[in-house]
Simulated assay, not measured.
Amino acid sequence: MDDLERELRDLSPWLRTPDAPELTGRVRARIAAPAPWWRRWRYYLAPVLVVLLVALLPPGRAALADAVAGVLRFAGVDIATVPGSPPSADAPSPLPSQLSLSLAEAQRQVRFPLRVPAGLGPLDEVLVADPDNTGACRVATLVFQGGAVRLDTFDGRIDPVYLKRVTEPGTEWVRVDGAFAVWVVGPHDLTYVDRTGVTRVQTARLAASTLIWEEAGVTYRLEGDLPKAEAIGIASALW
């Protein structure tokens, strides 16, 4: 024992130190007491607010679906990103029970308005497909420029209608009349999902660049060899 330690030991009887506080009882009482309401609710409100923000914003909805299912879902279209170039059928079959009608006849066969885009020239053909037991068709397609440009219209609020397989970068968020829309870049694989949920593999085909947007519960899918800015302009001028 060195001199310093010996001196400190000799000094200890002369020092007054406070009694050790009784902490056990305090800790037990703190645990048993209910936490303030603001402290309890913050643990529940934080995740709820995050989910609400994600659900209210269309990109948030898509991002959430992408994180959960590996598929970006937007307005009745499921878009999966795959490596390399997705395979496509060379000669796709038409959609189920597809018919070619006049615009007026086609409008009577669907439960949503058929709106014609300006600036694409004359309408070549109108196709309707996949009727239910009342004869109401699920999809209508307006064909322009000898088939080079197509505008699909359908109710996309509930079930997926189309599956897309794209390669990176694949998709881009844009706006049509201030609302969110999806721009699918370049050629990609497109497959139809019928009203029973069956994926119609035989309909798979190579689709051109596509703009997808939604208005009043109706989904529009404009496909063709169009620059992005031109496609957005066409989408903003339906009549």
Rank of each mutant, 00 (worst) to 15 (best):
V201M: 08
A104N: 07
R157L: 05
T171S: 11
V185M: 11
V128F: 09
E105F: 03
A104S: 13
V184H: 05
V116F: 03
G197T: 05
R195I: 10
T191F: 01
N133R: 07
G197H: 04
V184S: 10
D189T: 12
R115F: 03
S97V: 12
N133H: 04
T141N: 02
T219I: 07
G197K: 06
G156D: 12
D132N: 13
Q107A: 14
S97G: 02
V166H: 08
L95K: 13
S102D: 09
V161A: 05
R165I: 04
Q107R: 14
P96V: 09
A89I: 10
A181M: 04
E172I: 01
S93K: 10
A148H: 09
L127E: 08
L142E: 10
D132W: 06
F180A: 13
R165A: 07
A140H: 02
A204H: 00
Y192W: 11
W213Q: 04
L190H: 07
P187M: 06
G135T: 07
F112M: 10
R115G: 00
A91R: 14
A181G: 09
R138V: 03
Q145T: 12
Q202A: 15
P117M: 01
T134R: 14
F154S: 00
T167A: 15
Q98T: 03
S100I: 07
Q109V: 05
V193N: 04
S209F: 00
L120D: 05
E105G: 06
T219Q: 02
R195G: 00
Y162W: 15
D124T: 05
Y220W: 13
V193I: 13
L101E: 11
V176D: 12
A148F: 01
V110E: 02
S97Y: 07
A104R: 05
E105M: 08
L127D: 01
V143S: 04
P117H: 03
V201T: 14
T219Y: 06
R150P: 02
L120E: 07
C137V: 11
D132P: 12
S209E: 09
S97Q: 14
R111W: 03
P122H: 05
R200S: 06
V193Y: 02
G186S: 10
L123H: 10
L123V: 06
L206K: 15
W173D: 11
L123W: 04
E214V: 09
S209Y: 01
D155M: 03
T167Y: 09
S102F: 03
G119S: 06
D90F: 11
T171P: 05
D155E: 05
L211V: 04
D152Q: 09
T167P: 01
G178S: 08
E105D: 15
P96C: 06
R138G: 10
W213H: 08
E215M: 07
T203H: 09
R115M: 11
A208G: 12
D130G: 04
D159N: 11
P131L: 00
R138L: 14
E215C: 04
S97M: 12
T191Y: 01
Y162V: 15
G135M: 04
T196G: 05
R200V: 15
L222V: 04
T167C: 01
P92A: 13
R221Q: 15
V116Y: 08
P122V: 00
Q145R: 14
